Amino acid sequence: MVAAEGASGLFGYCVVEYTFFEQGFVTMLMVAPSARGRGVGRRLLGAVAASCETQKLFTSTNVSTQLDAAAAASSWVEASRPSPRP
């Protein structure tokens, strides 16, 4: 786990597990509402990517999250996107 803290407390954290085909997988990325939009998520993703113990690091999102923006800002590559439901 990697955490981001400031003078006012915890800004966010990111958890990586190694249970997805024996590769790193971001299971949780949380950023406090007061810290959103300031690059905290991008920096957390960068930190876990730099410390990842495997060749690849994956995550999964749904359309209701802001992780897509943080991942794009961190130069992550989209592996696939499911087709929209009818």
Rank of each mutant, 00 (worst) to 15 (best):
M1G: 14
V2C: 03
V2N: 09
V2K: 11
A3Y: 07
A4C: 07
A7C: 08
S8I: 01
S8K: 05
G9Y: 07
G9V: 05
L10F: 03
Y13Q: 01
Y13T: 00
Y13K: 00
Y13D: 00
C14Q: 05
C14K: 04
C14G: 01
V16F: 00
E17F: 04
E17S: 08
Y18F: 13
T19H: 12
T19D: 14
T19A: 13
T19E: 14
F20S: 02
F21Y: 13
F21W: 08
E22L: 10
E22F: 07
G24H: 03
F25E: 08
F25D: 07
F25A: 02
V26R: 00
V26W: 00
T27P: 05
M28R: 06
M28Q: 03
M28H: 04
L29F: 04
L29H: 00
M30G: 02
V31K: 01
V31Y: 03
V31P: 01
V31A: 01
A32N: 04
S34E: 14
S34L: 10
S34T: 14
A35M: 07
G37F: 14
R38E: 13
R38D: 07
R38T: 13
V40A: 09
R42M: 05
R42K: 14
L44Q: 00
L45M: 15
L45Y: 08
V48G: 05
A49V: 01
A49K: 12
S51H: 14
S51A: 15
S51K: 14
C52K: 04
E53Y: 06
T54G: 11
Q55K: 05
K56C: 11
L57F: 12
L57Q: 09
F58L: 12
F58D: 07
T59Q: 02
T61H: 02
T61F: 02
N62V: 12
N62L: 05
V63Y: 07
V63A: 14
V63M: 03
S64D: 04
T65V: 03
Q66G: 15
L67F: 02
L67N: 08
L67Q: 11
D68R: 12
D68H: 09
D68W: 07
D68M: 12
D68E: 15
A69P: 08
A69Y: 09
A70T: 04
A70H: 05
A71P: 08
A72P: 02
A72L: 13
A73W: 04
A73F: 10
A73P: 11
S75W: 07
S75A: 15
S75C: 11
W76D: 01
E78F: 01
E78W: 02
A79F: 14
A79N: 03
S83N: 07
S83V: 13
R85C: 06
P86Y: 03
P86I: 06
